[in-house]
Design a protein around this nucleic acid. Structure first.
Lengths: 137, 137
DNA sequence: TGCTTTGCTCATGATCTTATGATCTTTGCT
DNA sequence: AGCAAAGATCATAAGATCATGAGCAAAGCA
């Protein structure tokens, strides 16, 4: 459903959100906690930082943090900055360019309904909702 | 959403179903009609034949045909034989092994609902429903 | 100023999917 | 038997994604 890259990016963002720690999270620590290759994660985080989803500083005491409330960051934002194309903007299942609302195959309407539901999930769900519920909360 | 391989396989099956021709369809003709590499398609069709979704004969007059009524062949059958893993059996979006019905993240229930709807679409939709409506029907 | 910590970047390789071309095997026809 | 038509198979490679390792660049601290 999601590329590994997008999943790593989401996991990292969720992890940072779960910590609730205002001080920056180091790539090294995130990589270990999530069991993700360090430099690979570094590139992913950097892309997210360029998209404004994360902030970063270099040098001693540096790292990444969330500049926004996790409850306002939708999954689609993360995915869009990490995946060139998403599964859920597929028009026709068979890739038929001429399959449209105006000239559909029989399954077109039904497929669009499913696709829209997927799309809605990713645009409405936020990082906060992917975090574990507070234990003992 | 679907790998190119699965899409090609589906397109071919739908094309054969649309023809309604009882004589075998040649790989060469299918490849041209669908604009798909010939040998690549050949391998895909062969896999589908091994799974029992298609029948084939070699030699003069040979080719592929549907042994079953297109209305009884579900998309999941085609996809399962062409894709090792499907998008819609992903348990947790983040790939967390410990995220389950018993110990979910906050979005778990909502995601499962979406996933199940995708799954339902592929298990309930048949080849016949992907065919174009008969023109002038 | 210079050392250490940290993110950033580049070069490279592994692996999977997608694809191509050549050849082998089976079948039907004459 | 021999030829042609058709699927089956094999070797190979392009391209994307996934990943590693080495080193560069910036920031803080003494």
């Amino acid at each position: 459903m999601l590329s590994r890259t997008a999943r790593y990016g989401l996991k990292a963002a969720v992890h940072i959100a779960e910590q609730g720690d205002p001080s920056p999270a180091r790539v090294e620590d995130l990589a270990q906690a999530l069991d993700v290759p360090r430099n690979y994660l570094s590139k992913i985080l950097h892309r997210m930082a360029q998209a404004g989803l994360l902030n970063s500083t270099r040098g001693r005491g540096g790292g990444f943090w969330l500049p926004r409330d996790p409850g306002t960051v939708t999954l689609i934002e993360v995915i869009q900055c990490l995946e060139p194309t998403h599964a859920f903007d597929v028009q026709c299942l068979l890739g038929r360019p001429d399959c449209s609302d105006a000239d559909p195959c029989t399954a077109h309407g039904r497929w669009c309904a499913v696709r829209d539901e997927i799309s809605r999930f990713f645009t409405e769900t936020t990082l906060a909702e992917l975090a574990r519920p507070e234990s003992g909360g």
